[in-house]
Nucleic acid binder design. Sequence first.
DNA 1: CGAAGGCTTGATCTCGGTCAAGGCAGGTGG
DNA 2: CCACCTGCCTTGACCGAGATCAAGCCTTCG
Lengths: 224, 224
Amino acid sequence: MHLATIDESRRARAPIPFGLTGLIESIGTPYNYGTEDTVYRQCESADHWYLLVSGAARQCAQISDGRRQIMDFLLPGDLFGFEIAARRECSVECVAENTTVVRYERQRMESLMEADQNLARSVREIAFGSIDRLQSRMILLGRSRASERVCGFLLEMAHRAQKTIEGIVALPMSRYDIADYLAIAVETVSRSLTALRSEHVITFVGARNFRIVNREALEARCCR
Amino acid sequence: MHLATIDESRRARAPIPFGLTGLIESIGTPYNYGTEDTVYRQCESADHWYLLVSGAARQCAQISDGRRQIMDFLLPGDLFGFEIAARRECSVECVAENTTVVRYERQRMESLMEADQNLARSVREIAFGSIDRLQSRMILLGRSRASERVCGFLLEMAHRAQKTIEGIVALPMSRYDIADYLAIAVETVSRSLTALRSEHVITFVGARNFRIVNREALEARCCR
DNA sequence: CGAAGGCTTGATCTCGGTCAAGGCAGGTGG
DNA sequence: CCACCTGCCTTGACCGAGATCAAGCCTTCG
């Protein structure tokens, strides 16, 4: 039931959240990136907020042992970069070609929120929504098997992604990214996907596109 | 470095956050609970915010397989219960005798925030702070060994707890609660604690109180 | 005193991490 | 056009951390 929560709150804010549409031109600055480009790095000063408009990115933290944890994948409509601290906790790197983000000065947003109660409430709700999603993800990381995480991930992507022709869902990120998002090994991701394919739950169109063949089976495998 | 983040943001908001001190009398209603009492349950309607004043509580979600995940332990000064959804995602149950919370009507807080920019900003910062802490916890759950989790937990408790005489730190919650918080088995919690004790990193005063003997060793074991 | 719940310890088993290798597709240079 | 390389993905074999099962201990409470 919590995986559903992820999707609902996600869907609610995509593709472009609240009244930001009008703000994009007025106070935001658009930027364009390619694959593997960095929007910002861990420990840089955190004085901007961002809105991802097109493409995809990953938000990740480097662990001291060299591995990394991907906190979230950022898709069109996602607002990100509002740390409370002065420094970035995570870096944000693009995973898709031609990724566009709009950047807003934090100070300016602050004063804008003072003036505009609707904006203030929207931002608050986005923050609370993030908390809900993070809690759901905590359950996923804490209390589920590797194969369940993969199923949950596929359902999440299917729900968030703009559906293309015939229900084909794109996976813009690599298997390595998926592994670091779900906190399991690449090999395990691969094995889980192979299992789902050989049991006709999903099919693949190349390595980076899939289609759900048996949604019931997929859902049954994710919540345990 | 992320475990440190947990502590910092935590300390910043305890014992009583921002200007709520004045609000407690004016618009909040105090409630008193005993051990195992429920403040609210999963799926109840979510139209109040709460401030924990004394005692301790756990915020937890029930998983379909019967297990549970404890999202957070609530200690004095913690504000909780701001779901975006209409229904509670988690239940909150007290773990200590004589736990006091103050309840605020959400509607009333909303309108108060419209009037008081400082309050609005404070709430926003609390929310962003929660996000930071949740992300740190995600790293903990995703990318660390069982023994590291236990060490991190002890350090967190030592930092949050009001220090009693001679650096003795109370663990108000049971081993089962700790296990569900760290997403490991009770037996593993017990074994890790035993190991730390037999290596003279900590000592116990009864089962529910401990003292850090060798802080360096404890810190070295948690961040990997 | 006995019962119950919390805590600890031991024995066993299993999921998934790690190591190793091979397949496949796209890009580059001869 | 083919050979080669490189990066990504998949598959297999093995092993270990930790879950699970089982049992005993200690404290508290009726």
